[in-house]
Design a protein around this nucleic acid. Sequence first.
DNA 1: TTGAAAGCGCTAACAT
DNA 2: ATGTTAGCGCTTTCAA
Lengths: 366, 366
Amino acid sequence: MVADTYAARRAGSEMAAKGRVTIREVAERAGVSVATVSRVLSGNYPVPPATRTRVMRAAQALDYVANAHARALVGGGRKMVAVVLRQVTSPFYAQVAEGVEAEAAARGWLCLVGTTGGDPQRELEIVQLMREEGARLVILVGGVVEDDAYRERVAHYAQALDSSGARLVLCGRQAPDPDIPALVVEFDNEAGAHALTGHLLSAGHRRIVFLGGLPGNTALDARVAGYRAALAQHGLPPEAAQVVDCGLGRAAGHRAMAELLDGGTPEFTAVFAGDDMVAAGALRAIAEAGLRVPDDISVVGYNDIPLAEDFNPPLTTVRTPAEELGRAAVRIALRDPEHAAGAHHVLGTHIVVRDSVAAPPPGRAR
Amino acid sequence: MVADTYAARRAGSEMAAKGRVTIREVAERAGVSVATVSRVLSGNYPVPPATRTRVMRAAQALDYVANAHARALVGGGRKMVAVVLRQVTSPFYAQVAEGVEAEAAARGWLCLVGTTGGDPQRELEIVQLMREEGARLVILVGGVVEDDAYRERVAHYAQALDSSGARLVLCGRQAPDPDIPALVVEFDNEAGAHALTGHLLSAGHRRIVFLGGLPGNTALDARVAGYRAALAQHGLPPEAAQVVDCGLGRAAGHRAMAELLDGGTPEFTAVFAGDDMVAAGALRAIAEAGLRVPDDISVVGYNDIPLAEDFNPPLTTVRTPAEELGRAAVRIALRDPEHAAGAHHVLGTHIVVRDSVAAPPPGRAR
DNA sequence: TTGAAAGCGCTAACAT
DNA sequence: ATGTTAGCGCTTTCAA
């Protein structure tokens, strides 16, 4: 009596071996050598139609799939790009990842995704893993607090990757040293923030708080710099700048805004949120405080995530073409590998005007 | 005269070979055999501290990283799980992917992500790729139109994966046949839709349109079924059900809603959107038509994506714990591999009440 | 305690 | 036109 388990059934027909079907089994079934099978499947060598068909049939019948590891071992590695980001659920990061994946797939490259949760230690592990896996392109996405440890880490990644023929791309963060063999692709955050602050200023606002600073984070620091520069250019004193370093995320924006509103009607008339998620939190806190946007307070965000248009009210923000950032990263890195090292590309951004900005309320202007 | 290029510099110190550092180089530097190095690095074999240190130092100095392909070839493959989904920018899918990634990472597994854009052909290619790559777990995420071609495809995936010792998990979609060696983890869409429709009914609505049907898609079909069942249970005739098969996505929801509103004030008083993105589009169209939510029309969505709370008004919807879906998929599949095949797990959902539902306007009730 | 050697599945010379 | 064979980098017996 034999139990009719999957294992038992599997062992039955086709004489299927326990593990995967190998090229040798295909060769046997087709009555040729493994070399011939390899040639047929690789398709890079002339093989007479007759044997070709025999081999294909055998492969099909056995449902053979090549072992990518064995192939990579002898062929010098598969074409694979690795994206490393904080989290995939951030709309902005997700779009970048999608861009990378799309561009990679279009060129027949594989895409590996790793998330760090913002932990440098984890980032290091992931990069190591990607190296082991033989990724030829490692793309680090998103801003980070740039301290000495970071600089050293990135220098090490770049050197290590470079010495094994792989390439490092920094997406939305800077290279600690221009001599490092890494390609940088990012947005001009300072210019974007400058323009956006200008938009607020033009509407008549003078007391604008920047919500979501993150000292050391290059992306946020650049936005803060643009904000300050715009204020200064408009003739306002340095003290006019009010930066709340609450960090990013909807929850942080909500909490910080609630605190700001705690003491009754605030002095400021506009809020520059570090990104759209912060803006979402701020919007919510303002509504909870019984204030209206943009009548009582104007709010702007950054990134123009897909749902920014659905906020209440639709959010005025800066469009940073995230998917294009991802696509550009792989396109540039792959187009001209040699020249890419040390290169620095900046992608343009522009303001998207919607309904979250109005003139400050008469009583509180100035 | 020698150009001081990176290549030249690299060739200089350390005698670094052109490619990656291999175990042999480490062995040479440490003055031991490759076997010893392997034993030290694997750590699964007693090695005297003295040699151990020597080897570690050599590996460190050379910045050695093992070749995962070679390791996989001899060691039977790395622990890797593959997630295949339509796109990463959908908030719902992104959350599922994050859950999978998190649970996999926590167990030391690697996570490969592939996107299909909804193309069955591409899905097939990706699954093939994952097989080549030696994924031990392939997770297909999201609903699909379930036709004969689909059934055949999935049966083939499952059989092929199973015969090479890998496992197939269907996340949010059904197995075409319970005998197929695949694990299914999904939500009870019918129950969720039933409850949500009941919520609308309790508020006094009788003319509710379902926006976002997608005939053949199991997830949507189940929601429609729940919607119809609730209507029937409330004593309404079958004709009371009005299903608009516009498919999913914000754009589709917007377009379909705009059309519905084209002929002036509509007959229906509430909208059941197929998911939150459709709801976002519908909300927008309603606002553009000069109508208010929930005063003129009530709207509900499905999935409770992270930003549903920020819609205008905050959206009443069904919470489907997407990240937990992803985590559960890998947890269950890994916990009891043998028993997982053919198993079917259903995760609970619940309504999240916010501000997008009110009683129908007096003049239009009934 | 350590080394030598046999493969893992595949490709690419090199033979025939 | 097709077969034989030498590795790719690593782990793991089997000896010493």
